[in-house]
Amino acid sequence: MKKLGLATALLLAMTGAQAYQFEVQGQSEYIDITVNDKDFTGGLQGTYYLKDVDSSKGPLAEAAFLNQASNVSVAYNYGELSFVPGMDLIAHNYGIKAEAYVPTQVVPVYTSLSYSHTHLDGKNANTSDDNGDRYALELGAVVVPNFLVAVGYTSVADQTAIDAFNLMGNGVVKAVAETATIGQDQDAITARTKYVGAIDDTNMAIGFESGLIYGDDTAFQLKTDLYVTPKLSMGASYAESSFAGTPDSAWGANVNYFITPAVAVGATYVNANAEQGSVLDTQTVGVNAKFRF
Rank of each mutant, 00 (worst) to 15 (best):
Met14Lys: 12
Thr193Trp: 09
Phe83Val: 03
Leu222Gln: 07
Tyr115Cys: 00
Tyr101Arg: 12
Asp163Lys: 12
Arg192Leu: 06
Leu6Thr: 13
Tyr269Gly: 08
Val102Phe: 12
Lys231His: 08
Gly26Arg: 04
Gln68Thr: 05
Phe65Ile: 03
Leu120Met: 09
Tyr227Trp: 10
Ser233Leu: 13
Val172Thr: 12
Phe243Gly: 00
Ala9Phe: 01
Ala75Pro: 02
Thr193Leu: 13
Ala274Met: 05
Gln27Thr: 06
Ala205Lys: 15
Ala191His: 06
Asn170Tyr: 11
Tyr20Glu: 10
Leu226Met: 15
Ala9Leu: 06
Ala289Glu: 01
Pro103Thr: 12
Thr179Phe: 08
Asp39Trp: 03
Asp39Cys: 05
Thr229Ser: 14
Val74Glu: 01
Ala180Arg: 11
Val196Gln: 10
Ala64Val: 02
Ile199Leu: 15
Leu89Trp: 01
Val255Gly: 14
Asp281Lys: 12
Tyr195Asp: 09
Gln221Cys: 00
Val144Asn: 07
Ile189Asp: 06
Ala253Ile: 02
Gln45Trp: 01
Ile259Ala: 13
Phe165Gln: 08
Leu120Gln: 09
Tyr78Gly: 05
Leu139His: 02
Asp88Cys: 07
Ala9Asp: 05
Lys38Trp: 00
Gly26Asp: 01
Leu12Asp: 12
Leu81Phe: 14
Asn271Lys: 14
Tyr214Asn: 10
Asn166Tyr: 04
Ile96Glu: 00
Ala164Phe: 02
Val144His: 07
Leu113Asp: 01
Val173Asn: 07
His117Val: 02
Thr111Lys: 05
Leu167Val: 03
Asp133Leu: 01
Lys2Thr: 03
Pro261Ile: 13
Val287Leu: 15
Ala125Pro: 00
Gly16Lys: 10
Arg292Asn: 03
Val149Met: 14
Asn146Met: 03
Asn271Gly: 03
Asn271Tyr: 11
Ala19Ser: 13
Pro247Thr: 11
Asp217Trp: 03
Ala63Lys: 10
Val196Cys: 08
Glu99His: 08
Leu81Gly: 07
Phe65Pro: 00
Thr229Glu: 03
Met14Asp: 05
Ile182Leu: 04
Tyr257Asp: 07
Asn131Tyr: 02
Val72Arg: 12
Ala161His: 09
Thr104Glu: 06
Asn36Arg: 15
Gln21Gly: 08
Gln186Ala: 06
Leu226Tyr: 12
Leu148Cys: 04
Tyr214Leu: 07
Gly86Lys: 11
Val270Lys: 07
Asp217Asn: 14
Asp216Gly: 06
Leu10Ile: 11
Met1Phe: 05
Pro247Asn: 13
Pro145Asn: 15
Gln184Asn: 11
Trp251Val: 02
Thr8Ala: 15
Tyr257Cys: 08
Ser237Asn: 12
Gly43Met: 00
Gly140Gln: 09
Asp52Asn: 15
Val156Phe: 00
Ala219Val: 00
Val142Thr: 10
Ser278Val: 02
Gly46Asn: 01
Ser116Lys: 11
Arg192Trp: 09
Pro261Ala: 15
Thr181Trp: 11
Leu4Gly: 02
Gly140Tyr: 08
Thr282Glu: 10
Met14Arg: 13
Phe40Trp: 14
Val107Asp: 07
Asn67Phe: 04
Tyr48Ala: 12
Pro103Cys: 11
Gly58Asn: 13
Asp32Tyr: 07
Val84His: 08
Tyr78His: 14
Gly42Ala: 15
Lys174Val: 12
Asn131Asp: 15
Leu222Arg: 09
Gln21Leu: 01
Val285Asn: 07
Ser56Asn: 08
Asp187Met: 03
Ser155Tyr: 15
Ser82Ile: 00
